[in-house]
């Protein structure tokens, strides 16, 4: 027996899409492409949410799952959150708006179109623009940054270090 008043289906969908990434809270799970599907069943009151991890071991998945479930319940619906691995997440699923939010936050967004399969990356061949001053004169400091999805770079023009969202 459901006593809570449910919000409109569009409202719960919007609420799920607006859940922020716990590590980079300026972007939402919809911006990142982590959110794959939201299916609202008005007959049963169940909201089915499918999410996908950026990396297999991403520790944020548990926090995201809990947050999504909380948001759905708060809207008066019953959450069913599942994680799907295939097709594997790619930075191509990130929205243009999400990339712009990252840049404004100081994280260089991923380049367009990840190539399928293993690609040996030669040191210093790619150009990544500094999210602060826009210079393309930047160097990689570390291939693994503060989270699994980021690398660390420095801008030679403004001397600031910054995170780069790795293209995957």
């Amino acid at each position: 027996m459901v006593t809570t008043t449910r919000t409109a289906p569009e409202a719960v969908e919007a609420a799920v899409g607006a859940v922020p990434d716990p590590e980079v809270p300026v972007v939402t799970i919809a911006d990142l492409g982590i959110l794959r599907t939201v299916r609202v069943d008005e007959a049963t009151g169940v909201v089915e949410v499918v999410i996908t991890p950026t990396y297999s071991g991403c520790p944020a998945m548990e926090a995201i799952t809990a947050h999504v479930a909380h948001v759905v319940r708060a809207a008066g619906w019953e959450p069913r959150v599942t994680s799907r691995l295939r097709p594997a997440w790619t930075t191509d699923w990130m929205s243009e708006e999400g990339k712009e939010k990252l840049r404004r936050f100081g994280i260089a967004p991923p380049a367009h179109t990840a190539t399928a399969g293993p690609v040996p990356v030669a040191l210093g061949r790619r150009t990544v623009d500094c999210p602060r001053c826009g210079s393309s004169d930047t160097v990689e400091l570390a291939r693994f940054g503060s989270t699994a999805c980021k690398a660390l770079r420095r801008c030679e023009a403004c001397r600031e270090t910054f995170d780069e969202f790795k293209t995957l």
Binding site: P53, Y55, S56, L85, R86, P87, A88, W89, G117, P118, V119, P120, V121, L123, R143, F144, K166, L168
Partner: peptide
């Protein structure tokens, strides 16, 4: 085994990055 195939498709991208790191 579709689960193994899905894990492998995901993990393949990760381990090629590991390999490149070791290579460097």
């Amino acid at each position: 085994d579709t689960t193994f195939a899905a894990v492998a498709a995901k993990a393949g991208k990760e381990v090629s990055y590991h390999h490149d790191h070791a290579r460097q």
